[in-house]
Amino acid sequence: MSLLEIKNVSINYHTNDKTVYAVQDVSMNVDEQDSVGIVGESGSGKSTLAMGILRLLPENIIETSGEALLEGEDILAMDTKHLQEVRWMKMSVVFQKSMNALSPVHRIGYQMEDIYRVHYPNEDKKVIQDKIYSLLKMVNLPERVYMSYPHELSGGMMQRVAIALSLIFEPKLLIMDEATTALDVVTQTQILNEIIDLEKNMNIARIMITHDMSVVASTCKKVVVMYAGRIMEQGLVNDVLVNPQHPYTKGLMSSFPSFTGERKNLKGIEGNLPDMSIYPTGCVFAPRCPFATERCHKEIPQLKKYGDNWEVACFQSGGTSNE
């Protein structure tokens, strides 16, 4: 059994006059100690998927279907009380804007203590403080951070605080939503290396949401490529990023410069994301796809096995059907 099994999850936003199909029919697995990168351009639904799994979307305007089994329990169907017990104990999250990750008017240590008490309300203050100091040390932060306010730290330090906070209960699953995107590359690399060390020691599986292919390539085992709310291709980083099968993945890869290859013009992908409030009749990528045939516009391609741990949703890829 996988740590996290996402089965046919769809998430729609309802606004006054229309429905936005933000995530459609997404299925993926995260094993223990796995590291999965979810990539895609802005609006591809990758953050909505993560926030949906964390149940952090405004529930009055969204409609979710499918299952997200965390150690066999469906998060999407949990009642509030049980959800609050599971949160942070089994899965935690690091957000992009870590400068705002904590309340600006309370001391960092105080907030971490308070969060610790959410799950261990009667724990001794000394024990909690020791735990927090050791966490701060683990992410290479000085002790003074405990008594500091968020505005007194730099972006990189706050990111470390957010990471320390996310590890406070040693969760099984850590979701990083664009967690290092706002940092400079040097700090980003440092922090990513630290995380990889930490998760080895603590047996943590990580989902990394990013639009930075190089981050995925260097820190993840598996990659999920999303476009317009759907998975286009998923598999091992070594397969998918080396020999992409889906035209969209190919397009994404040619949108990034390569260090080793010859200098050539970056291509990018022609066209824009489709209107997500219109339910597609065919492949969502077909309007921008250079290889699209008549069938692509009429029928939605399902994910098909292309190899071991490798799935592609394209009629052209020539994989074998799952069914």
């Binding site: 952090l56 959800l83 935690s92 705002n100 904590l102 309340s103 309370h106 969060i115």
Partner: peptide, 26 residues
């Protein structure tokens, strides 16, 4: 709508506590 409210929610803190302890002071 601030981000830190999202963090606190994700930690499993109750809406009551988030509101009276963190939202109010801010």
């Amino acid at each position: 709508s601030e981000d830190f409210i999202m963090t606190l929610r994700a930690t499993g803190m109750s809406e009551q506590k988030i509101f009276f302890k963190y939202v109010m002071r801010n």
